[in-house]
Design a protein around this nucleic acid. Structure first.
Lengths: 140, 140
DNA sequence: TAAACTGTAACATATATTGTTACAGGTAAA
DNA sequence: TTTACCTGTAACAATATATGTTACAGTTTA
């Protein structure tokens, strides 16, 4: 993981597409809402498409969810847009000639995985539909 | 959170200090094990000291744990060394003139907190003593 | 055929992370 | 009390990562 806002932006994009169906859904228009650049939006959308979250077609500003919003979890979106999904990063450059430098990595790896699993389990519970509903209810 | 190995290195340092008591515990020596720079080590140690995890004294290479290893959790160390502890980062630059740009932040914040709490709860369960024991058992 | 769009590569900028140099001042032992 | 070695910390450099931008080939629709 990292200091990236790609997950937030990806959720933003998907939510935008669902809520604003029928209006202009070009990357330029979405970029205005995210306050970013059309290319950045298309980049994220390409990743979402790759992972089966989004349908879009070349030349047409007509993106759609690839499947129902209650079957798309935060974890799905996270995995789609982040190439490195680990929240905690192990230092892999430690000195292998040292007892601790040599063994710290496998030990930490085990515990870091526990933390990762716990976070991912929680992310899997949260669905895109939850977020969409919440934003729609605020808007009314 | 971020793409930082400070947590890993901090655990490494603390483990090193406990296991190698009686030997040379200068920042230069520890840096060799971490395969880093003495100043980087001292920087991390200063943060651990600040948060009550470590005792060290100016001029003397004699660092010690500030309290028993089974009372120091991964979460304590993480909070000591990382100034920004959030694993997921919200894009705060979205367009406030847009319905979604305006409301996405508070909505995501709520769900991100759930993920954060879940991860932190897990990190709190893991104690420095667990890691030390594990490395000691491998070494035998 | 024209206007507007997507998809993607290539490059530029910004920011975060780690490494390095430098030095003031503490400590311990000869 | 001098010497060698240490910590703590500031300032700067190098590197890695994230985001923004320009450019353009090819698609779609009217």
């Amino acid at each position: 993981m990292k200091n990236s806002t790609k997950l937030s932006d990806a959720i933003h994009i998907l939510t935008y597409i669902v809520i604003n169906q029928g209006t202009d859904l070009s990357s330029t228009q979405i970029a205005k809402s995210v306050n970013s650049n059309p290319v950045v939006i298309r980049r994220i959308m390409a990743q979402l498409k790759n992972e089966g979250c989004l349908i879009s077609s070349n030349g047409r500003a007509n993106p759609q969810l690839a499947r129902p919003a209650d079957t798309i979890s935060l974890l799905d979106i996270y995995r789609a847009v982040e190439e490195e999904t680990d929240f905690l990063k192990i230092d892999t450059k430690t000195n292998p000639n040292c007892n601790i430098g040599r063994h710290i990595q496998t030990t930490l790896d085990k515990y870091y995985q526990q933390v990762q699993e716990s976070a991912e389990k929680e992310m899997n519970k949260i669905k895109l539909s939850d977020i969409i509903k919440e934003i729609q209810s605020i808007q009314q």
